[in-house]
């Protein structure tokens, strides 16, 4: 997706906060942040990490510097495999206008050797927010791969996919009741923006989202059906 089109599509849907979370990658995040500058849209720099257990997790940060530090950690834990474009598709890096800069040669569609718990520690130490992604999905969902939410780490929120409502998710997995839920679009195409999770925040920051997940003060997180 081309950065300026991501920004205009989000704005046209009255969305004012999105996160860019490529698979084990972040090389395009800066371009989207630039494309959104001077608009009302806030871009959270992030990544969708695939852990050793093949669990997908959203790693969300406030700054590109934090994300770059995290990317370096992840790079050191990815296997040295070359992307096969025929099988896995292109991995383009573009600028803020969408112009081609380079191809990422390394295969990104694979697992880091970081365990789920190690990744939680790393993201948290950097001040980031660690949210297991599409936990209900058969492919790469936390609940399929690890059976349940690891009780030994204080997970701050869980993301459910667009294919299930919060009510259905709680009915199917009653043990997730103690965790705040968000729902994201896992948007791969411009026409699939979801925007069903509404945050009431004092500012669009990780600290505020963290407080909202705890229900602190007037802050709220609610999922509205699409």
């Amino acid at each position: 997706m081309i950065p300026p089109l991501i920004v205009s599509e989000a704005l046209s849907r009255q969305i004012d906060l999105i996160a860019i979370t490529d698979h084990n990658a972040s090389a395009n995040v800066g371009a989207v942040i630039k494309a959104a500058s001077d608009t009302g849209l806030t871009i959270l720099p992030g990544m969708e990490l695939q852990t050793r257990e093949e669990v997908h997790v959203l790693c969300l940060f406030d700054t590109l510097e934090q994300l770059e530090t995290w990317q370096a950690v992840v790079n050191a834990t990815l296997p040295n495999l070359e992307n096969n474009i025929e099988h896995f598709g292109e991995q383009f890096v573009v600028d803020e206008t969408g112009d081609f800069i380079r191809r990422e040669p390394r295969l990104l569609l694979t697992s880091s050797s970081l365990t789920f718990n190690e990744a939680w520690q790393g993201v948290t130490d950097l001040g980031g927010l660690f949210i297991p992604a599409h936990i209900n999905r058969r492919q790469n969902g936390l609940l399929a791969n690890l059976g349940f939410v690891p009780p030994e780490i204080p997970i701050e929120g869980l993301e459910i996919s667009r294919h299930i409502s919060p009510e259905e998710a709680l009915k199917k997995y009653p043990f997730i009741k103690r965790y705040p839920l968000i729902q994201s679009g896992d948007v791969h195409l411009l026409d699939s923006f979801l925007g069903s999770t509404h945050f009431t925040l004092e500012a669009p920051t990780i600290a505020e989202i963290r407080l909202a997940l705890k229900g602190a003060g007037q802050r709220t997180v609610t999922i509205h059906p699409c």
């Binding site: 257990e53 789920f116 718990n117 399929a144 791969n145 690890l146 059976g147 349940f148 690891p150």
Partner: peptide, 26 residues
Amino acid sequence: LLSCVMSGAKSRGIWVTLQAHMNIVA
């Protein structure tokens, strides 16, 4: 896939896996 194990493995059995996450103990 621990979700499969929870519904498929039988008691007093041996479970063979390459998962090493703490959840395997539970």
